[in-house]
Nucleic acid binder design. Structure first.
Lengths: 120, 120
DNA sequence: CGAGGACGTTTACCCATGTAATCGATGCAG
DNA sequence: CTGCATCGATTACATGGGTAAACGTCCTCG
């Protein structure tokens, strides 16, 4: 099932560190997103329904862990965008993004390294 | 204002060629997406409301033309993804995508060229 | 033992979106 | 002139998502 935008914020938190309690998750994501703890709880529940995360009982409460893998999520999202906007071609995308936002020299160096690697 | 997924299909059609009538647009996008002409008309109207396109009268009907620029749309979309998933860093994104999907030699060559260009 | 709190669960509500049918005006074929 | 076909405009309706409060249950402190 599809993970929505707001939900993905919770997922990211869990991908960063898991398992965690609802309280811990909320502590991390509620403020920056202007959400109340109630909102975070709703998101957690929707993710449970979608089987994107699992709950393991710990005493009185639960700790949540991701079931969906970040790599798969990232791949689906970026591939979708790539296909929709750049006809699946990476080069035009890189071209576009590098124009739209200046790259740091480190970025350029890193890219160069990547390409060199691919070129074998 | 935000352009939704379905709406973006209409936008893409108009970016490809404009101005066009609703009928022409529908002819191009309805079938492949499994939409009726009515659906396309709704999308057109929503885009009008959002000021993403404009209508110019032509005899008894209208021809539509994009107001929003594709470049801006593409930039917003890809930048959003880049920020959300790759912390705004292009190199990790390229790395991820090139792993997830093998690049053609042309792509690699093109990328190499791009990087070389940036490096000045 | 009783009250307050901590948690997860349920319910709520509104807006955007996907999808489409219907309506109203208008121009054209007879 | 009149009825049919066309168009755009209006209305419809279900689902998903963002946002959150209310509820029920159990634990714990006094």
């Amino acid at each position: 099932m599809k993970i929505s935008n707001a939900e993905s914020v919770v997922m990211e938190a869990l991908w960063r560190a898991a398992p965690r309690t609802a309280e811990e998750i909320a502590a991390e994501v509620a403020g920056p997103n202007g959400w109340t703890e109630a909102t975070v709880k709703t998101l957690i529940n929707r993710l449970l329904k979608k089987k994107a995360i699992a709950a393991e009982p710990e005493g009185r409460r639960y700790r949540y862990r991701p079931l969906a893998e970040r790599a798969a999520y990232v791949r689906a999202e970026s591939q979708g965008l790539l296909d929709r906007l750049f006809d699946g071609r990476l080069a035009p995308m890189v071209s576009h993004l590098s124009q739209a936002r200046a790259l740091s020299p480190e970025d350029v160096a890193e890219l160069k390294r990547l390409i060199a690697e691919m070129d074998e």
